[in-house]
């Protein structure tokens, strides 16, 4: 079994719901807490397992905003595990989930250097490395209804841009989706063989802009008033 996520870059709306739900669940989960530094101050920062970045691809008017969530890819060839000197980082043979044993980690940062995807973050409070657990404490929880045995991010996504499943099983939803939509892994040239896959944005014709009418006088006045009133 090779559990992982499939992320649809076509439908992701960049709302950060996955990141927030992840933070909420994991702040009291197996590697809790996810320390925040200066949370209400001038320069808030803290530990997150999932970060959403925003890119623009192409040139106007053929451009598109791509929202790009990234978390641990649970790589097949997880170099973060091989470089760890303490054995705190390990990959579970049964489902491929990469975890950090908080009782063994000495906080040397070496594994974060080895991860190309920025998936590992040191918690300065506990002095240990933290990372996505694929909600290992949810997905096997027999107390939860079957449909909720999924990572928190997947349940939270309002655009259904995140799929969770077994990528080893060729007929699972995730595998079929990857096949149909031409899913790909990030930075294959580094040969980490990440489990998580990304579905490329669909190609749509550009929206024509050259036939837009010039704004009327009334609209110009309205926009001007809007600007003035806002200040």
């Amino acid at each position: 079994m090779r559990l992982g996520l499939v992320i649809d870059l076509d439908t992701c709306v960049g709302c950060h719901a996955c990141a927030t739900a992840c933070k909420e669940w994991n702040a009291s989960s197996i590697t809790a807490p996810l320390t925040d530094y200066d949370p209400y101050g001038q320069e808030p920062s803290g530990v997150w397992f999932n970060r959403v970045r925003h890119y623009e691809v192409g040139e106007y008017p053929n451009n598109k905003t791509i929202n790009f969530p990234m978390s641990c890819m649970h790589c097949e060839n997880a170099e973060c595990v091989t470089v760890c000197p303490t054995g705190a980082s390990y990959k579970r043979p049964e489902d491929g989930i990469v975890l950090v044993d908080q009782d063994k980690c000495m906080g040397c940062n070496y594994c974060s250097w080895a991860c190309p995807y920025g998936a590992r973050e040191l918690d300065h409070e506990s002095g240990t490395m933290k990372k996505c657990t694929l909600c290992v404490d949810r997905i096997y929880d027999q107390e939860l209804p079957v449909e909720e045995r999924q990572p928190a991010c997947v349940l939270a996504c309002p655009a259904h841009a995140r799929l969770f499943g077994d990528l080893d099983d060729a007929e699972s939803t995730v595998s079929r989706t990857v096949r149909d939509r031409g899913g790909y892994a990030l930075m294959p040239e580094l040969n980490y063989n990440p489990t998580n896959q990304y579905l490329p944005p669909r190609v749509r014709p550009a929206i024509a802009t050259n036939d837009l009418a010039r704004p009327s006088l009334a609209r110009k006045v309205k926009e001007w008033v809007n600007r003035v009133v806002e200040r």
């Binding site: 320069e43 920062s45 925003h54 890119y55 451009n63």
Partner: peptide, 23 residues
């Protein structure tokens, strides 16, 4: 190549966090 978005030039719009992170 890092994002796999090869159809055009890719540029960062927003890092997604207001201030610095561990990374």
């Amino acid at each position: 190549t890092a994002t796999g978005l090869s159809r055009g030039k890719v540029r960062l719009l927003d890092q997604g966090h207001t201030f610095g992170t561990f990374l």
